[in-house]
């Protein structure tokens, strides 16, 4: 590129990249900025260019001094997001991702719970406490029961209701303490499943750990972490 030619702006390769850089810098006028923002949503190649510039320019961020926001701001934010400022008893209770649907599945749920309880009751008495969890979320059509026996290497699931949309899969996650969610695998489309648990995760199955189901692209999360909405979750408890 010659240094003197200030009209040389339309090299195809640099045109999009320069636009992405202008968008990230923030210099574009309102209408052009809005058009670029819309393009980020629909054009993955352009979105990657934007992400590249966000990364490239991020070293400037250390020049911006942190300033503590007023405490009332968090309460207002909580009211806005959750309708109230106080914390719920458990985070799975705050899941509100689906429009209200009929809760006809409750009877089926009770039936399955009874079956599980019956099965558990007929086990040899020397077994240590088993772990069960009912996975659900308010207003979500997805309900499942999961059973784990300490010493075993599999978790058994019974779907009570809910199936993924076409082209999507449900994926099961174990969340223990502050650890990132660990995938336990994609659920088969049928109503019951037995998922083998990697040995490294078996010790993490304990009362208080959380199982959650997220909606993922077919075949499961491409990233190893949940990428879609969580449609059901619950905490393991010993019985």
């Amino acid at each position: 590129m010659s240094n003197g030619d200030d009209n040389d702006l339309t090299v195809p390769e640099t045109g999009d990249d320069a636009l992405a850089a202008e968008y990230v810098l923030g210099v574009l006028p309102f209408a052009e900025r809005a058009a670029a923002a819309a393009r980020v949503e629909v054009d993955p190649a352009f979105a990657r260019r934007v992400a590249g510039w966000e990364r490239r320019l991020s070293p400037f961020d250390d020049e911006t001094a942190p300033v503590a926001p007023p405490p009332a701001l968090k309460s207002a934010l909580d009211r806005r997001l959750f309708g109230e400022a106080q914390k719920p008893a458990g985070w799975w209770r705050s899941l509100a991702l689906w429009r209200p649907l009929a809760i006809a599945s409750l009877a089926a749920c009770a039936l399955l719970a009874g079956m599980l309880a019956n099965e558990i009751a007929t086990r040899p008495p020397e077994s240590v406490a088993r772990l069960v969890v009912q996975l659900e979320a308010p207003d979500s059509p997805v309900k499942m029961l999961a059973l784990f026996e300490p010493g075993s290497s599999a978790v058994r699931l019974s779907a009570v209701s809910g199936t993924p949309d076409s082209g999507r899969d449900f994926e099961l996650w174990l969340i223990e303490g502050d650890n990132p969610p660990a995938s336990l695998g994609v659920l088969p489309p049928s109503g019951a499943a037995t998922l083998d648990i990697p040995e490294s995760l078996q010790a993490s199955f304990a009362a208080g750990a959380t199982l959650a189901i997220s909606v993922e692209p077919a075949g499961g999360s491409p990233t190893g972490q949940p990428t879609g909405p969580v449609v059901a979750a619950g905490q393991l408890r010993a019985i």
Binding site: P88, W91, L97, P180, P181, Q225, P229, V230
Partner: peptide, 11 residues
């Protein structure tokens, strides 16, 4: 790690 838990709607 916190962001991936927020993605799971962990308040």
């Amino acid at each position: 790690r916190l962001l991936s838990r927020v993605a799971l709607r962990d308040r």
